[in-house]
Design a protein around this nucleic acid. Sequence first.
DNA 1: TATTGTTATACTCTATAACTATA
DNA 2: TATAGTTATAGAGTATAACAATA
Lengths: 152, 152
Amino acid sequence: MAASLQENNPLETDVEAIEHVMLQLGWATHRQLHQELAEFNLTVSQFAAMRALQGFDEGSTMSELAEAARQISATMTGIVDRLVESEIVTRQRDPGDRRTLRVSLTEKGVGLLEKVKEKKRVQLRQFLEGISPTERKIFVRVIGKYLDVVYG
Amino acid sequence: MAASLQENNPLETDVEAIEHVMLQLGWATHRQLHQELAEFNLTVSQFAAMRALQGFDEGSTMSELAEAARQISATMTGIVDRLVESEIVTRQRDPGDRRTLRVSLTEKGVGLLEKVKEKKRVQLRQFLEGISPTERKIFVRVIGKYLDVVYG
DNA sequence: TATTGTTATACTCTATAACTATA
DNA sequence: TATAGTTATAGAGTATAACAATA
């Protein structure tokens, strides 16, 4: 029955194929990144926070940062504690509203982030060289749509 | 300078675009899954272990399971402890070699895994309906190549 | 002695609830 | 009173190193 459903419904065949490949991708990506970041004494959550901070030129508040990195603020407090300890970010009171904190990447943080990203780019170049320009364009567009639908 | 490099080198432009989108995808996927699994009282690592167990009809040893789920065995011991506690898997001595353990999904475990996967399929169908069959085929093939290159 | 797996330890992440300081 | 953020607490994941049981 499942077989005949699939024969008559190519969408459903693709759903199963993509379900498997996306779950595989998600976990493999996470574990791989976890191990690569260990060489830099970083965790995946810390790296996500560092990436999120790139988007804020004037420094981010704790709440903005938590939202951008998909965490709650209590969790982000601990993550930033350790990034401050490692001198990767600074956390300073906003003079205008002393309840608010401004978190910014230090020079060291910016450099470290760039180093990690360059390492990832090496893998990506190898991957992209194996697919055609058309496939590349479609891939980027389709991943964008995936993000919209699943996390939009 | 970076701009002129990119103008003359479409590959490098794609590297930057895909670097961003893949890191975004990796973290968003992880956090989303973490939150969705909480409703089932599961963690992402437990779910990865459950998925890995599907591939073993006769039950998996701890070392096989650890490798399939990309963990070391000491970590897997703790994960399986909690899956046994929740009656999602069983862990039994192999009579032929009493050093070895055989881990298998219970009926409850199989059912729970199917429930989670069906929930993910609902999102996937919505996504796939928004892209053409050609794009789907390319997407599956390209993701497969990505997995080969990056985690090969 | 070699292999299979667990235990001990230390640290990080995570969510919830209660709390402090400032507005 | 409302807002921004931290602290306290409890549980889970992770790697390393030392250990026990079996072959």
